[in-house]
Design a protein around this nucleic acid. Structure first.
Lengths: 233, 233
DNA sequence: TAGTGGTCTAGACCACTTT
DNA sequence: AAGTGGTCTAGACCACTAC
């Protein structure tokens, strides 16, 4: 007796993936239709559909109505990058987290910021500078500008105990964000904050966020020299 | 007449997302069961299931059998980072790409590499250094070590026209990878390759890849000063 | 052991795209 | 006009897990 076990979409997904990786279906090749695969695997078309949909999400194949499913020429492998709070990142490496507010004031948006965030030139913004420490050693310097029009309550938020990032996440989650990673050299001020020497190389993360299309905040987070961002895929 | 239109999983997904973002369902709250939501939206349970599954993938909710679906406390927003060939990255910014092989030789794996890639200390590896240019200006210096045991054919591959990255992608796609982004200061040799001055800050990407559990290659890619990695989410 | 999500099925209709 | 993927349904059974 053959096993009358039901075929799972994972079996289909993995087998199709295998055929792609072993070049049984080479780059650019047209796969059988969903109906044909369903017959081959003796399962419902919906099962094949889910398998192929996942492979499309993962960048292995490209699907188009009428044309069919093709193996991608240059598989666009992508990694997931998590953006957590500094506190979470620090605690995940089993270090003790400490937060310190450096500066906080309300200003009119300078030109570069207005342009960066697409707000009016004279928009009122809350400017915050704060430090995150891991085991009492500088971990990250955070400088942030928050569009008060988008989050009026922030003007009266208490930022002495917790950083603006934490406050925002709880009070006003963003819906869209743009991120850039750069490498920067420490100038005198940065070096002082991070307890390092002028010229040290550090990873800087700049992030702009929107909420329902309205610009909310621009943040620049500079990490201590030697910090690496790691991920797998 | 009310529109007898069928409810799509996207409608359900977006409405649930809205309720989470507007705190109608606050952090940690238990959502209705799939069956209840299906009744509310007047659709099939499978439709609700797909909507909630996507939200779980995106980090908005956590699902557990028997316990139900909960709003995540700290939504783990994550961005997709694509890792393309240097050539693709350059061409995408409308620059002209040029490749140049700098060095190529077969060596016994030094200790640090054996440890990094988890191969034997005396494993034979192909060591390649090459440059990628954008509009004839240095774009990326790539230094790569390839485990010959994992990809024997590479020993005789022609790397004069195209980089090892392209060759590997076509000949032996990897199945797993680990990545680290760091910021480094240019030493004399790096500065010379990148046409910059000693001490310049540059983004360095280190990647180790495996194929079916077997270590394949370790690559270190250093980008010209000022290069940023950008993404959205 | 009971409740909840996870998945499969068989069939149907829709929507996009190429011809 | 026709072919292919995209999605929904209604029902069923399974698998995990809290109780």
């Amino acid at each position: 007796m053959t096993a009358p076990k039901r075929i799972s979409f994972q079996v289909v997904r993995d087998e199709v993936k295998r055929r792609i990786e072993t070049r049984i279906w080479p780059q650019g090749a047209l796969l059988p239709t969903e109906t044909q695969l369903a017959e081959e695997f003796n399962c419902a078309r919906a099962t094949v559909n889910r398998a192929l949909r996942e492979l499309a999400d993962q960048g292995f194949v490209e699907r188009k109505r009428k044309s069919g499913t093709r193996v991608k020429k240059e598989p666009s492998k992508h990694a997931k990058l998590e953006f957590s709070l500094a506190r979470q990142t620090v605690e995940r490496q089993n270090s003790t987290y400490r937060y310190s507010l450096v500066e906080r004031n309300v200003v009119d948006s300078p030109g570069w910021l207005a342009s960066q965030m697409s707000v009016a030139h004279d928009a009122r913004v809350l400017h915050v500078i704060c430090m995150h420490y891991a085991d009492n050693r500088p971990f990250q310097l955070e400088e942030r500008w928050i569009n008060i029009a988008a989050v009026p309550e922030v003007e009266f938020a208490d930022l002495n105990e917790h950083g603006p990032h934490e406050w925002l996440l709880k009070a006003a989650p963003f819906t869209e964000a743009e991120v850039a990673f750069c490498a920067v050299s420490a100038d005198g001020r940065l070096a002082e904050f991070m307890g390092t020497t002028t010229g040290a190389s550090m990873i800087q993360l700049e992030r702009t966020t929107w909420r329902d299309g309205q610009p909310m905040t621009f943040a620049r987070m500079t990490h201590h020299p030697g910090y690496c961002i790691r991920t797998k895929y």
